[in-house]
């Protein structure tokens, strides 16, 4: 049997579907997994005054902030992707997101939002022994929007795996931008997931899709305008170039990343769309699919390229 549950968190809808035996047992696991996601929403939200993230942003400019293992591990992962992406992925873009208007008025005060601010993950200092972080200078703030959903899904996976027995296979997603498969459906290779590829300029022509079969792995997709707002007639996408503190201008039309961990796939889909290409430092354990842009800024879905260990898993096709 299959049990489904859902939760509104991190500005989107998370859903979990569990296959296995026993409605009550499956329901308990689904609820516990969603409760974990809800907890990370409260901990990592930039929209809540009382989140751990707001505490770090308020405090880390003045003194080191001690963190639990999971949050510390998350920041470690952020810095690893930052390095491997040559700085394209950067969680210290908080003040830029705030200044551009991506945080609503009710969001807590953000250091640097009104005056000088500073972007650069090399200013995010870790103390491995103390499990603490601090900002190298004032005017810094974190925004974990490009990795938080993946992190929450990874920890929800841990809850599902700890409750061994009842669950045979599971599929979890956060607002359809990151999806995680745990195990595989009985008698099948995995869960089939389709990604709609962006249409060329004008939106004419057939719809293109990329299909991939997931088993014990995560897939994340980023679009340039997955979230956006309008300012002075200009459409601003939510992917920020850390070098300019403005929405990216080049990059890719769409990027997808496939990895064991949702944290990694989530972060890399953002890094890849900003870069528009696969960086040499990205190991083969993360598979990428990139839909390039042409000179005029139109998507070139027919030139989509997959690379990495699982590159052969992506199958592109055109709809009727």
């Amino acid at each position: 049997m299959i049990v489904r549950r859902a939760l509104f968190a991190m500005g989107t809808r998370f859903e979990i579907a569990l296959a296995g035996e026993g409605e009550r047992a499956l329901g308990d696991v689904a609820e516990a997994a969603l409760a974990e996601i809800g907890e990370w929403d409260r901990r990592l939200s930039v929209f809540r005054q009382d989140s751990l993230l707001a505490h770090v942003n308020r405090t880390a400019g003045a003194r080191p902030v001690r963190l639990d293992e999971d949050t510390f591990g998350l920041l470690r992962a952020c810095l690893a992707v930052h390095r491997a992406s040559g700085g394209a992925f950067d969680v210290t873009i908080g003040p830029a997101m705030r200044a551009l208007g991506f945080h609503d008025a009710a969001a807590p005060a953000c250091p640097g939002a009104a005056g000088a601010f500073f972007i650069g993950s090399d200013g995010l200092l870790r103390d491995e022994e103390e499990h603490s972080v601090r900002f190298a200078r004032p005017g810094m703030a974190l925004d974990l929007g490009a990795i938080g959903k993946g992190h929450a899904l990874d920890l929800a996976e841990r809850v599902v795996r700890q409750a061994n027995g009842a669950v045979q296979a599971a599929l979890l997603h956060g607002g359809t931008s990151t999806i995680k498969a745990i195990g595989r459906p009985p008698g099948k290779e995995g869960f089939d997931v389709a990604v709609r590829l962006p249409a060329p300029a004008g939106g004419a022509g057939p719809g293109r899709f990329a299909r991939v079969t997931l088993a014990d792995e995560s897939l994340s997709v980023s679009g340039r305008f997955g979230r956006w707002l309008e300012q002075d007639g200009e459409r601003l996408g939510h992917v920020i170039d850390p070098a300019t503190a403005r929405p990216i201008t080049g990059g890719a039309a769409l990027a997808a990343a496939l990895s064991r961990s949702a944290r990694e796939s989530d972060a890399w889909s953002t890094a890849l769309i900003a870069l528009g290409r696969r960086p040499p430092a990205l190991g083969p354990e993360v598979t990428s699919l990139i839909v390039p842009l042409d000179q005029a800024g139109a998507a070139r879905a027919e030139e989509s390229r997959a690379a990495g260990d699982r590159a052969a898993a992506f199958h592109c096709w055109e709809s009727q």
């Binding site: 005056g115 000088a116 601010f117 500073f118 005017g139």
Partner: peptide, 17 residues
Amino acid sequence: ETTRRLFLQQAGGAAAL
């Protein structure tokens, strides 16, 4: 230089810093 930059949103920003 590509990863670490200071952004001044307004003239007063520098003084505040």
